[in-house]
Every structure is written in structure tokens, then in C-alpha cells.
């Protein structure tokens, strides 16, 4: 069984898992404070004969403190999160040397278009494969997402990457895999009755393996 985030396999896992942990600690403190406080009060101040409650309408100092602390924490969290957000999803976040792959979603499959030997999409040597995303390790990849019919969502949990795929929009998302292996792409936006089986695989290869695979796949595609 699994009690934590999925294994880490992209460069995003560092900042995202770190942020997750930081928020878990902050909220964990708040959680313990409130729940322990509640239980303490429940026991300590339960009704007993002859007692009267302490008559008060509040305390401005206490209220200022417990407004200010969350406010400062939230603003700080916003600033830190935004720093990573801009790196991950910002409008200029996609590295210039990112390797392009076209991903086209339709009810209920994924079509991956590879750039072929020239490394560019939209040229004559492109070829398309269903439900298999092959990428080289250690190199930024930009997936160019398009949808045929309804909204789908491109999601690879081990990469912590997710981007909706919207009909009528061309959306780019990038990531960089760090560990060779096989992973799964899930559709994470309800897209119809076959939503649950709209699954594909990601194969992360070393650069040599990738080049070899590319040669062979291009050959097979041209036959």
C-alpha cells in the first residue's frame, strides 16, 4: 500500500513535493492546535454544577494576533508558490531547447506525434503512434496538446505534471523526466463513458535507447 506521493520521476517533483511537505507542516501545526484545543476545552470546561461561564465578549489583542499570523503565513506561502508556478507553468517557462512531441486526445485515446529525425514537428518525417509516449531522460520535453472532441487532461503522476487538453486551444506543457522507466498517462478530466480507460504509457529512455527506438519506429511508420 501507498501512503505518500508517487515515486519521483521528473524535475518538478523537487519543488512540488517540497511545497506539499511545507504546507503539510504548516497546516499540520494549525490542525493539531485546533483539534487539541477543542478536546482540551471539551474536557476542561464541560458543565459542572455550580460553575458559571466566564462572561466576556472577546479580546482585541488575541483577535489581532490570530488574524495576523494566518495572514502573514498565507502571503508568504503565496509568494513561494508563485515562484515555482512561474518556473513550471509560467508563460515563458518552456525551455528553448525543449524537444517537441504532439499529443492529440480524443474519446478515448491518445495519439502521439513524433518529430522524426529532424527533431521538428510539422515536417514530412513526423509519425504518429497511439497510446505510447516515448521520451529521452534528462531533456526538457514540450508536449503540444490538442483535443478532437471534448476536454481531456494529460496527467503523469510520477512527473507531477497535469494539463487540460481543450478542444479549440493549442496548449503547450513541458516537463523533464529524471528516471528511465515506464509510467502511465491518465486522463484526469471526465470525458465520457470511456474516461476510465483513456490510458496511455510513458516510456522514459536513455538518450541512446531513445535514438535507437526513434530510428526503428520511424522506419516502421514509413513502411
Amino acid at each position: 500500500m501507498h501512503w505518500w506521493l508517487p515515486p519521483k520521476a521528473s524535475t518538478f517533483t523537487g519543488p512540488i513535493d517540497g511545497l506539499f511537505l511545507a504546507i503539510l507542516i504548516i497546516t499540520g501545526i494549525a490542525f493539531v492546535l485546533v483539534e487539541v484545543g477543542l478536546i482540551w476545552f471539551i474536557v476542561q470546561y464541560r458543565q459542572r454544577p455550580g460553575r458559571k461561564a466566564f462572561y466576556t465578549h472577546g479580546n482585541t489583542r488575541a483577535e489581532v494576533i490570530w488574524t495576523a499570523i494566518p495572514a502573514v503565513t498565507m502571503v508568504a506561502l503565496g509568494l513561494i508558490s508563485n515562484h515555482y508556478w512561474v518556473e513550471i507553468k509560467g508563460r515563458n517557462s518552456i525551455p528553448a531547447n525543449a524537444y517537441p512531441i504532439g499529443v492529440h486526445a480524443k474519446q478515448f485515446e491518445w495519439q502521439m506525434t513524433y518529430p522524426g529525425a529532424d527533431g521538428k514537428l510539422g515536417t514530412g518525417d513526423d509519425f504518429t503512434i497511439r497510446n505510447q509516449l516515448h521520451v529521452p531522460v534528462g531533456r526538457p520535453i514540450v508536449v503540444q496538446l490538442s483535443a478532437e472532441d471534448v476536454i481531456h487532461s494529460f496527467y503523469v503522476p510520477q512527473f507531477r505534471v497535469r494539463q487540460d487538453v481543450v478542444p479549440g486551444m493549442d496548449i503547450k506543457a513541458w516537463f523533464q523526466a529524471t528516471v528511465p522507466g515506464t509510467y502511465e498517462i491518465g486522463c484526469s478530466q471526465l470525458c465520457g463513458l470511456g474516461h476510465y480507460r483513456m490510458r496511455a504509457q510513458v516510456f522514459v529512455h536513455t538518450q541512446e535507447d531513445y535514438d535507437a527506438w526513434m530510428k526503428q519506429a520511424a522506419q516502421e511508420a514509413s513502411q
Binding site: A30, V34, G37, L38, F41, I42, Y45, R46, Q47, R48, R51, K52, A53, F54, T56, G58, N59, A62, E63, W66, T67, P70, A71, M74, V75, L77, G78, S81, N82, W85
Partner: peptide, 30 residues
């Protein structure tokens, strides 16, 4: 939208602490 969402957690926190403040030194009837 992230910033406005985080800010909205503040009044929620205020309400929670004030409920606890209400129970503090009360004579609780369950």
C-alpha cells in the same frame, strides 16, 4: 487567483479561533 484564495483562508481561520474563544472558559452543555 492563488493569492485571493489564500487570503480567503484568513477570515475562515478567524471564525475558527473565535468559535474556540467562545468555548474557552465556558460551561459546556453537550
Amino acid at each position: 487567483f492563488m493569492v485571493s484564495t489564500l487570503v480567503i483562508a484568513v477570515p475562515s481561520a478567524v471564525k475558527t479561533f473565535n468559535w474556540m474563544g467562545t468555548m474557552w472558559r465556558g460551561n459546556l452543555r453537550f
